[in-house]
Simulated scan of single mutants.
Amino acid sequence: MQRDRIDSKVWIERLKLEPHPEGGFFRETYRAKGKVTREQESDVRSASTAIYFLLCDGAHSAWHRIRSDEVWHFYAGDPVDVHVLDANGALVTHRLGNALHHPDTVFQAVVEAGDWFAAECREASGAALVGCTVAPGFEFSEFEMATPGMLEARYPQHRELIARLGPLSSRASSTTTQGQA
């Protein structure tokens, strides 16, 4: 398997990335000026938002969900597994990567609104730069991080994967929670 190595320190500096509360590094790159409301709701939000997201140094994106669809885009580096749990407990893993070098990967994957998801580099020593686009736009008030034990109790058939990609308590308390897509 060909490796598409990237230097994470260079990308953190070049793209001005900050630590993300769910793991990895990010920077919001786009927030639509156009506003939308969901049916049956009065909250106004940006029509769409986008971020750069970097996974490296063994970090993973811990289990979380949002109330909007999220499209993941692969840019550079090693393949990334985006694990998605739907309301019925079905697990789907999307493998993002350079599909020209890794035939078992795709350049884009969608996580539907309300599904729990987590992501990790396919290889623990890997690094990958991806992007995430959310529509309607991301609002932190709609971000829900899974609490330890909650998903394992609800979906015991996936207990090992859920536990492995759980949140680190120190991560949540030491990072900012504003401006994520």
Score class of each variant (00 low, 15 high):
1 M>H: 09
2 Q>D: 06
6 I>Y: 08
6 I>A: 10
6 I>C: 06
7 D>Q: 12
11 W>I: 13
13 E>W: 00
18 E>H: 09
20 H>I: 02
21 P>S: 11
21 P>T: 09
24 G>D: 12
26 F>Y: 15
29 T>N: 00
29 T>A: 02
29 T>C: 00
31 R>V: 12
34 G>T: 14
34 G>M: 11
35 K>Q: 15
38 R>P: 00
39 E>L: 08
48 S>N: 07
48 S>Y: 05
49 T>Y: 06
50 A>H: 03
50 A>D: 04
52 Y>P: 07
53 F>C: 05
55 L>W: 03
56 C>I: 07
56 C>F: 04
56 C>P: 00
57 D>E: 15
57 D>N: 14
58 G>N: 11
59 A>W: 05
61 S>T: 14
61 S>E: 08
61 S>I: 07
62 A>R: 03
63 W>Y: 12
65 R>S: 09
70 E>G: 06
71 V>N: 01
71 V>I: 15
72 W>S: 08
73 H>G: 07
75 Y>P: 01
77 G>D: 08
78 D>L: 03
79 P>F: 06
83 H>C: 12
85 L>N: 09
85 L>R: 06
87 A>D: 13
89 G>R: 06
90 A>R: 14
90 A>L: 14
93 T>A: 08
94 H>Y: 11
94 H>R: 03
95 R>S: 07
95 R>F: 00
96 L>E: 05
97 G>C: 02
97 G>H: 02
97 G>E: 02
97 G>K: 01
100 L>G: 12
101 H>D: 10
103 P>I: 12
104 D>P: 00
105 T>C: 15
112 E>P: 01
115 D>N: 15
116 W>I: 10
119 A>P: 05
121 C>W: 05
121 C>Q: 06
126 G>T: 04
127 A>P: 00
129 L>T: 09
129 L>F: 07
130 V>L: 13
133 T>W: 00
134 V>C: 05
135 A>E: 01
135 A>T: 13
137 G>N: 10
138 F>T: 13
139 E>R: 10
141 S>V: 11
142 E>S: 09
143 F>I: 07
143 F>N: 08
143 F>H: 14
146 A>F: 08
146 A>N: 10
147 T>G: 09
148 P>I: 12
150 M>Q: 14
153 A>Q: 10
156 P>Y: 12
157 Q>A: 15
157 Q>R: 12
157 Q>H: 13
159 R>T: 14
162 I>R: 03
162 I>H: 04
164 R>G: 01
164 R>S: 08
166 G>W: 01
167 P>R: 11
168 L>A: 13
169 S>N: 14
170 S>P: 00
171 R>K: 15
171 R>F: 02
173 S>F: 09
173 S>W: 07
175 T>A: 02
179 G>T: 07
179 G>H: 04
180 Q>E: 06
